[in-house]
């Protein structure tokens, strides 16, 4: 079965700026997929290529096997997009905006009205149905963008910074809705600046930088590439930093009675670490492992790349 999204060597340049520079990856059906990257990495450009708001210069993109140019109607019909910017019809109350959008997707009037009502209830702004978009509060505007993406019952839900500037309660609400949809089989493509959100929600993430995909993996896999810190508190402060020969340990620092061990894969290292220390006559009273966050790995990956670029190693 074709993947939900297939992108191969996508290219798009604005003058000298290469917004997409050979972007390639695939999203499986039913996946909750995160697209992470610093500003200007090409995330929004990529999304706009999929929905037909940006002409790609080269490469291939398909949605459920439908080429986004040759079979653009099939591809677009399957996508529900909640964009970063507010781009909503100002002339009509929001329930009519939803009915129109559903109509554009071939959904007849009666059914469109039912779905519009359902979508507004789902995101919790049914009581604002007769209001125009401009009169909604910021949080309600975000909710509405999600409702508009849902009203066509998409198989691929694309969320471009859906929780930007949104308070904690609303974020939780929105994620509840989205997770339920994903559980029901809707593929989700998410871009967000809140990396801990991606870490918690996504099955896999793609790290993008400068118009390319740097890596694709599960959040766990990515985190395991980062370095964890193991804090071992000893009963008696050691006079000097003990030398430990353990696979994976990169660095040992001493902070009073606590040893700070930097290692790839803290959980794997900890048992050997304890054995060695006790063998050397130390009494361990406390142990704490702090795993690398996805955010740290993300910053490492995108920063390293920048440095490499400057050195002329990449590109």
């Amino acid at each position: 079965m074709e993947p939900a999204i297939y992108a191969d060597d996508l290219r798009k340049a604005y003058g000298d700026v290469r917004a997409l520079d050979g972007l390639s990856f695939a999203v499986d059906r039913g996946e909750f997929f995160g697209l992470l990257g610093p500003n200007g990495a090409g995330k929004t450009t990529f999304i706009n290529v999929l929905v037909g708001l940006v002409h790609k210069d080269g490469g291939t993109a398909e949605v459920f096997g439908y080429d986004i140019e040759d079979d653009y109607r099939e591809a677009r019909d399957r996508i529900g997009l909640s964009p970063q910017e507010f781009n909503v019809d100002r002339f009509f109350p929001i329930h009519e905006v939803l009915e129109h959008k559903a109509g554009y997707h071939g959904i007849p009037q009666g059914e469109a009205e039912r779905r519009a009502a359902e979508a507004l209830k789902t995101v919790g702004i049914w009581d604002k149905r007769d209001t125009r978009f401009d009169w909604l509060s910021g949080g309600m505007k975000r909710r509405f963008l999600l409702a508009r993406a849902l009203v066509t019952d998409p198989e691929l839900l694309i969320l471009d910074e859906p929780t930007a500037g949104v308070d904690v309660q609303l974020r939780r609400d929105l994620w509840g809705v989205i997770e339920r949809l994903n559980a029901a089989g809707t593929t989700v493509l998410l871009t967000t600046h809140y990396i801990e959100e991606a870490e918690r929600l996504c099955d896999r993430v793609a790290i993008t930088d400068e118009g390319r995909v740097v890596d694709v993996a599960t959040p766990d896999e990515l985190r395991s590439r980062g370095t964890d810190k193991v804090y071992v508190t000893l009963a008696d402060p050691p006079a000097e930093t003990p030398a430990l020969d353990i696979d994976g340990v990169r660095e040992i620092d001493r902070d009073g009675d606590t040893l700070v061990v930097t290692a790839g894969g803290g959980g794997r290292v900890a048992p050997a670490l304890l054995r060695e220390l006790e063998y050397a006559g130390h009494e361990v009273v406390d142990l704490d492992i702090r795993r690398a966050s996805l955010e740290e790995v993300f910053v490492d990956m995108t920063r390293v790349d920048e440095e490499a670029e400057e050195l002329g190693v990449v590109g």
């Binding site: 059906r29 039913g30 909750f32 198989e155 029901a184 089989g185 896999r204 599960t218």
Partner: peptide, 10 residues
């Protein structure tokens, strides 16, 4: 590797 169970995909 981490794809959710493909069986639920619509």
């Amino acid at each position: 590797a981490a794809a959710t169970d493909g069986g639920t995909a619509r």
